[in-house]
Structure formats: structure tokens, C-alpha cells
Nucleic acid binder design. Sequence first.
DNA 1: GGGTCAAACTTGACACTGTAAAGTAAGCGC
DNA 2: GCGCTTACTTTACAGTGTCAAGTTTGACCC
Lengths: 200, 200
Amino acid sequence: MTKQTDKKKHHHGNLREALITAGVELLEEGGIDALTLRKCAQRAGVSHAAPAHHFDGLQGLKLAIAERGFQMFSKYLRDAIDTGPQTPHDRMRSIAVGYVRFGQDHAGLLDVIFGGHGLAAIVNEGGRDEAEAYLILREVCAPFVPEGDNPLVVEAQVWSLIHGFTLLFLAGEFGPPDQPLDGGPFDQIMALLARVGTPP
Amino acid sequence: MTKQTDKKKHHHGNLREALITAGVELLEEGGIDALTLRKCAQRAGVSHAAPAHHFDGLQGLKLAIAERGFQMFSKYLRDAIDTGPQTPHDRMRSIAVGYVRFGQDHAGLLDVIFGGHGLAAIVNEGGRDEAEAYLILREVCAPFVPEGDNPLVVEAQVWSLIHGFTLLFLAGEFGPPDQPLDGGPFDQIMALLARVGTPP
DNA sequence: GGGTCAAACTTGACACTGTAAAGTAAGCGC
DNA sequence: GCGCTTACTTTACAGTGTCAAGTTTGACCC
């Protein structure tokens, strides 16, 4: 049994976390293409082959980064909700704002989390942090679930709408991605979001 | 003025199209990571540096592949709409079916089209084929646009919802991505889609 | 304390990638 | 025939992920 309270390891001292942090930094600075095993290693001050002892190759590192990313993502959602007014409708709007804001602030992380082969693999492996984000969604959706209905229905509707809007918005499909949310296409999405789970 | 009707070029005979086709094939066989300039060149029977004379590097090739992908995408949408019943609501459902089907059949292409740095660049450059897909969307949305309203509102709602659902569905967030659409979460999305553009 | 051993890390190598520069060949106008 | 632009090849180089060995380090046990 190791005695130290913090997880200092043999040589470097929790290299694993340092590599993830380096990866997040690279991601923010240069996007998904700048994320490289060797550059992470260099930034953490170790040799290029050191990461192999902590992750299963580049994909393993991306998985770990996605885990960290989900934590940040959950924090964005939670903060947005806690900061705004507490009407069910306002909380719904807040989670959407948090979703888009996270994408604006951390586009590279969003790519790792939701892009390509990322998501499915994460869900099946270390889906704890993603589950937390989903719990926030569930919590916000709950007031809109009709009595006796499966909450999954509203959740799928809300998630799909917000997710799709965020990606298209960030891709510039609805105008410049750095435009303010209020008064833009975001409001139109919220209008539809307000009709979620209501009887026809 | 060149005399040949088909665009046979000097040596290879329209290498450009051959490279794009090779790229699409690689994409279907091995996903986005299998798409490589050198492998495309090899498959087209030319040296690895030949593609540089037709595309601006790998990104240029991806752009051209995305253009081809948008043509296939539009065909999927159009076919789905033409095949099904012609009620406005049915046409709306059909375009969503075509969207998801395209993703199921050509996941790699969807990555190139909508993933990463793809979309924004395409829109700003050779957005002709993407415009065609958007025109189909517009056409299907038209009956749902309230008198005097800006059609962009409904279009943004519909596109966001379908796009988000497709990506999440293909990522396995709503169960196995090869499950039949009828009777699954897809129906729940369609339920919300039916409330598009209606007054509150 | 000293020995044992496994984990953490380094070194070196390999195949593969994109890209640039220089060389070669092929088609076209004249 | 002669130039000359275009299409393509050859060669080279800096990075990349990954594997197979070495080397160091720390922990544990007697």
C-alpha cells in the first residue's frame, strides 16, 4: 500500500495527469491536429515513448482527455444552470447556453469528446463523467416530461436539438460562431425547445 | 481548346476524379483515419506526390471529397423524399430518414463533410453541392413556415434537430446505430419535428 | 543494509505520414 | 522540327505512432 496521500509516482510524479493536461493545452492552442503523443510527452518533460506506459496509444490518450473534457463540460452546464434564473424553462435555456459556450471556448475538446470515434468508445469504457453530464440533462428535462412518460423521450429530443444546433452553429452554418446568442438563431432553437414533451 | 468530350488529361486521364473516388473508397473501407494522400495515389496508380498537382494538400483532397460527398448526400435526401408519401409531414420524415441512412451507409463521408474543420471551409469555397442539399431542406420545410415568417427559423430548427439526432444516434447514444428507425428513438424526434414552426 | 523485482522511463529503430524541391516526360501550339 | 506549359516521378526531410530493447528508480522483504 502506498503511503503518500497525493498520487506521486516513482519518477515524474503523476505523469498521467501531466500528459492529459498537456494534451488539453495543445488542443486549445492548435486544435485536434496539434494533439500529438510526442508533443504531449515533450511538454510534460519526458521522452516520446513515456506515454505508452500510461495510455493505450494515442487513442487511449484521447480517451483520457475526453474524460477530463467531460468534467469540464459538466461544469459548464452546471455553472450555466446555477447562474441563471430557476424557472424550468430558464434552466432549459441555460443548459443550452452552457453547451454552446463550452463549444465556443473549447472547440478542440468538443471534437475529442463528440467527434469521430470518440463518443461511443467513451460511453462503453469510462462513462462516469459523461453520465454526470447526462444526469444534468435529465434533471433539467424532468419538469417537461409528461406524467407517466419515459424521460428518455424528452431527453433525446432536447439533446439532439441542442447538440445539432451547437455543432452547426460552431461550424458557421448560422452565421459567425462568435456572435452573441441572444437575438440570433439560438432563440429560434429555444422556441422549439419550449414545445418539447407537450401533447400535440 | 481540348477536343475530347470527356475530360481525359495528358497522362493519366482525369486523375483528379480518380483520386477522389479512391479517397471515397478508402473512407468507406477504413474510416477517416484510412484516408491518406499516399494511399489515394497508390490506388489511382500514380506516385505519392502526384495529388499535389490537383489538390492543395490533404485538406484540399478532403474538400474535394466533401464536395463529392455532398452530391451523394443530396441524392440520399432526394431519393428518400421521392420514394415516400408526399404529405408535408411525410416528406419531413423522409428527409430525416435519408439523413440518418446516409450516415449509416457512409459514416466516413459524414465525418469528412461535417466533422472537424470540414464544413465551414466547404461552405466558404465550393458550396454549390451543399447548397443543393440545403435547397432540399428548404423545400421540405416550406409548408411548415408560418405565413410571413422567415423560413430560416424553421430550417434552423429542423436541421439542428435532425443533425444532432443523426450524430448522436450514429455514435450509439440511443442504442445500436444499426437498429431499425421505426419504433425507436427516431420516432420521438419526429414527434418534436411535427411541432416545428407552429405557434405556441 | 542489501538484494530482488517490478514499474517508470529512455533510447533506438521502423514504417508511415504530408510536403517541398528538383528532375523527367508528355502533350500542345507554332 | 522547337519551345513550353502541364503532369507526373524521384528524392529527400521532418514528424508521427508504435514496438523492442535497455536503464534507472523506488518499494518491498529478509
